[in-house]
Amino acid sequence: MVNTILTIALAITILSIGITMVRFAIGKTAIDRVIAFDVMTIASISIIAILAWMSGRVIYLDIAIVYGLLSFLAVIIIAKYLEKSL
């Protein structure tokens, strides 16, 4: 039962990443693409957490923490670059 519900949750999260890909592709401005990137990384944090439960490995949560840290740094650095103050 739990496994079924979590599989559905995983599928919906992957669907949301797919819809975000549309915004990433049509974009218009660089900021739009950065926002889409940010949303995709945060959705993948919850995907990683669900996968950690499915494979029963707690070490995947550490990967989620490092992944979140790196995506935060990436967004800040891209913003600084676009502001021309890097």
Partner: peptide, 11 residues
Amino acid sequence: LFGSFVLLVAS
């Protein structure tokens, strides 16, 4: 499951 629906709304 509810959390993944909220993520869907975000996208």
